[in-house]
């Protein structure tokens, strides 16, 4: 249905995406919205998670880390699934795209993303500079952008942006204190070492949003503060009134739970 709207002529030259029979989809919406059938919602989420992921990747090109934005896009998808009115006969995709984008834009606006960008660019610049030095020492000559990209698993554009930043920030030491981190004296260099399981989240990927609801309220809040609001562990500790060590433990435990839950979900389906 959605492909018929946008690609009448091209369907001959390109395989149309596997479109699910429209009534099948409408039935799923009906089962979820009308009868709170969570299995139907799960089915819709897994169908459209690639859409959310694709939008996050396109919109969040310069956003780091990507998985935070993917979380937000997943949230947008859940909202779209809740609010979509299947009876109006429009394809879900046409409703979901602006809803998911709206969620990501709000997130960027509210989280002060415009302020964080220079920081994430600087962090990446630091990694690129490190790789540049390391690879130069190894090979006896400066690496190409492609070699750095491969080494750091970035795309070439990210490396180019980082080189740009290195040039323009040449006078600013990357070891200077990160803005907002004065209290605990964290520098850009420090924050690179702190991974907090971000990479685990990538692996868990798409299914995270759908199992988040299984976590206790406090854990969810902590995950949100860490990965969506981009707060440091110390900042979270201050907000919820526990020690930073406890936050660290809670984060680790939540991630483990998420991994178990998503693993379980995979086995079940």
């Amino acid at each position: 249905m959605s492909s018929a709207t946008y690609s009448p002529a091209a369907s001959g030259t390109q395989p149309a995406t596997p479109v699910f029979a429209a009534e099948g989809e409408a039935a799923l919406f009906n089962r979820w919205q009308g009868h709170a059938d969570t299995a139907a919602r799960e089915a819709l989420v897994s169908r459209y998670m690639p859409l959310a992921r694709s939008l996050a990747r396109r919109y969040g090109r310069s956003s780091e880390p990507f998985e935070d934005l993917l979380q937000v896009a997943s949230l947008g998808l859940l909202k779209a699934i809740d609010r979509f009115d299947a009876s109006r006969g429009f394809p879900f995709r046409a409703f979901a795209v602006p809803t998911i984008l709206g969620e990501m834009r709000r997130y960027f606006r509210d989280s002060g993303w415009a302020v964080h960008v220079p920081r994430s660019v600087q962090e990446r610049a630091l990694k690129v500079r490190g790789a540049q030095e390391g690879l130069t020492n190894q090979a006896g000559r400066a690496p190409t952008v492609g070699q750095i990209a491969q080494f750091l698993e970035l795309d070439t554009e990210e490396v180019i942006d980082a080189l740009q930043a290195i040039q323009s920030y040449e006078t600013v030491s990357l070891d200077a204190q990160a803005p907002g981190a004065e209290e605990d004296g964290a520098s850009y260099g420090d924050s690179l070492g702190e991974e907090d399981g971000r990479y685990e989240l990538v692996e868990l990927g798409a299914t995270v949003a759908s199992v988040m609801s299984h976590l206790p309220e406090r854990e969810r809040r902590i995950l949100h503060m860490r990965f969506v609001e981009d707060l440091t562990q110390s900042e979270i500790a201050e907000r919820i009134g526990v020690s930073q060590m406890q936050v660290s433990r809670l984060l680790r435990r939540s991630l483990e739970q998420l991994r178990t839950l998503t693993g379980g979900a995979a086995e079940g389906s």
């Binding site: 959605s2 492909s3 709207t5 946008y6 690609s7 149309a16 995406t17 459209y48 998670m49 690639p50 859409l51 992921r53 694709s54 939008l55 396109r58 995709r93 046409a94 795209v97 602006p98």
Partner: peptide
């Protein structure tokens, strides 16, 4: 998942 994303 990307087909038809561009225009919207």
């Amino acid at each position: 998942g990307a087909v038809g994303i561009g225009l919207p």
